[in-house]
């Protein structure tokens, strides 16, 4: 075999590695379509044309633990409104997102403050989510190049792993996002967010699948920052309705106050 021209060996190696690479596999039409379908499901999982719901957010850090209950509304990917119901001290505090802008209404001082660019990386309501996380509207089906982990394609494996690299023109803080999907339900169980150096930054767990708003969805989402022992932010949806009629006027500075 070694008597063959080295060029042919080299070409063979190159061809094999290209052909066998996950991306090349994904490029085959049927797999490509399946990937797009799964990513689309994931993208629209907790989103509809509009939504309305109530949820509880528990934040645990080394320093404090707090639980907030809040009401949420969203329309499309651009508009959302969150209003705190409890605790009493923060009742009425509200966040309005329109496009990439965020305003906070603070009932104590009765003022609305637009979150400046310098504060977009700061924590939202003390949680592990930043204001930037709130305005991020990435769609994996469009903004990322994703590939299946071939090993998880085996029928014996229950969870499918998808690795996604952001396209170059997409402004995200992640270098890579991986997700695990339960093959039977096609629902996510976990996603992992990595920085540009491929270090795990955050893990997101999707648990407690229930039917809510006519869809089977994981109703408990937990964000776990890497390297912060015991810290997490957990969001539990207690009510969620999709595709209901919500007026655009709800997403205005006037209604933010009430």
């Amino acid at each position: 075999m070694l008597k063959q021209s080295p060029w042919i060996v080299l070409l063979a190696i190159v061809w094999m590695s290209v052909a066998m690479s996950p991306r090349a596999l994904a490029r085959q039409p049927s797999e490509d379509a399946e990937m797009q379908r799964l990513l689309g499901l994931f993208d629209d999982l907790l989103r509809g044309a509009s939504s309305q719901g109530t949820m509880t957010m528990t934040v645990k850090t080394k320093r404090f633990e707090r639980t907030l209950s809040m009401q949420t509304w969203s329309k499309g990917t651009d508009k959302s409104l969150v209003r705190i119901l409890e605790p009493v001290k923060e009742k009425g505090t509200a966040t309005l997102k329109v496009g990439d802008k965020i305003w906070n209404y603070l009932p104590k001082v009765d003022r609305t403050i637009k979150v400046p660019g310098s504060m977009m990386g700061a924590s939202w309501m003390g949680s592990h989510f930043t204001n930037d996380d709130l305005v991020a509207k990435i769609r994996y089906s469009e903004d990322f190049a994703c590939s299946f982990d071939p090993a998880t394609r085996e029928p014996s494996v229950k969870e499918l792993r998808i690795d996604c690299i952001p396209n170059e023109d997409v402004a995200v803080v992640w270098g890579k996002v991986s997700m695990l999907l339960d093959k039977a339900s096609e629902l996510p169980t976990q996603s992992m967010f990595y920085d540009d150096d491929d270090e795990l930054v955050r893990t997101m767990k999707y648990e407690n699948v229930r039917t809510m708003g006519g869809k089977r969805i994981p109703t408990v989402l937990t964000a776990i920052p890497a390297g912060e022992d015991g810290e997490f932010t957990r969001v539990e949806h207690s009510k969620l309705e999709f595709d209901i009629d919500i007026s655009d006027r709800l997403f205005s500075l006037q209604s933010l106050k009430q």
């Binding site: 320093r63 001290k89 923060e90 906070n104 603070l106 104590k108 001082v109 003022r111 309501m125 949680s127």
Partner: peptide
């Protein structure tokens, strides 16, 4: 003037 920040209990510190 409104002063904003994060309070020790995780809530949004705000005062006029």
């Amino acid at each position: 003037l409104i002063v904003l920040g994060q309070a020790t209990d995780g809530s949004m510190a705000n005062e006029l």
